[in-house]
């Protein structure tokens, strides 16, 4: 039993130490506010103008066909990032299901509909956190709907976080497809 006591003490002490930090953070799942995300994504922007989504049923169907999955534009919020009168790009926020809970994220798009960055705003599950990894999210940067934007193709999976990776990638692909059709060909 002497052997057991050491790891047990270490684990309990670590647990207790962690518990001590609990009170400092109330909303542990929220990593980035939308306001902070917008500033992070477009540091030069002087204004984020709400950008209304005008999508006809036909347009939505066309995007769904191209993106390969149902669209949920009702959950999207879009802003146009401006510096003075110059449009720098767009920020779209959305949420997808991880395994059980929603992952809130933001996609920044350049005016040519290429992806500028992807940020995780809130992650609520106990597993699959790896999508927060900057290196993994960087895989999207510079790509557009012209790329496959699929797990197991041009976006590498994270073993053990397959559902989070897949659903997030599907979400980003839908936004990129909308951007390609609505912003570039409009």
């Amino acid at each position: 039993m002497r052997y057991h006591s050491i790891p047990a003490v270490v684990i309990c002490a670590a647990a207790a130490a962690s518990a001590g930090l609990v009170v400092t953070q109330v909303y542990a799942a929220d990593y980035l506010s939308i306001a902070d995300a917008k500033k992070l994504m477009f540091a030069d922007a002087t204004e984020f103008a709400p950008y209304p989504l005008h999508m006809s049923a036909d347009q939505q169907k066309a995007i769904e066909a191209k993106a390969g999955g149902p669209l949920r534009p009702a959950g999207w919020v879009v802003w146009q990032a401006k510096k003075g009168d110059t449009v720098l790009g767009y920020v779209v926020t959305d949420a997808v299901l991880g395994k059980f809970e929603l992952i809130s994220y933001a996609v920044a798009l350049n005016t040519d509909a290429t992806i500028r960055s992807v940020e995780i705003l809130a992650y609520r599950e106990s597993h699959g956190f790896e999508v927060r990894n900057q290196a993994w999210r960087n895989q999207f940067v510079g790509k557009s709907a012209k790329a496959p934007l699929r797990i197991g193709d041009d976006i590498a999976n994270i073993s053990g976080a397959t559902l989070s990776c897949t659903h997030l990638t599907d979400g980003v692909r839908r936004i990129a497809t909308w951007a390609q059709l609505a912003l570039v060909h409009a």
């Binding site: 057991h4 047990a8 590498a156 999976n157 073993s159």
Partner: peptide, 18 residues
């Protein structure tokens, strides 16, 4: 009566590699 301990570490900081 006898308990076991485990430790597991995974690194996925490089995309596509675990």
């Amino acid at each position: 009566q006898h308990l076991s301990q485990y430790v597991s570490v995974n690194y996925s900081g490089i995309p596509s590699l675990l």
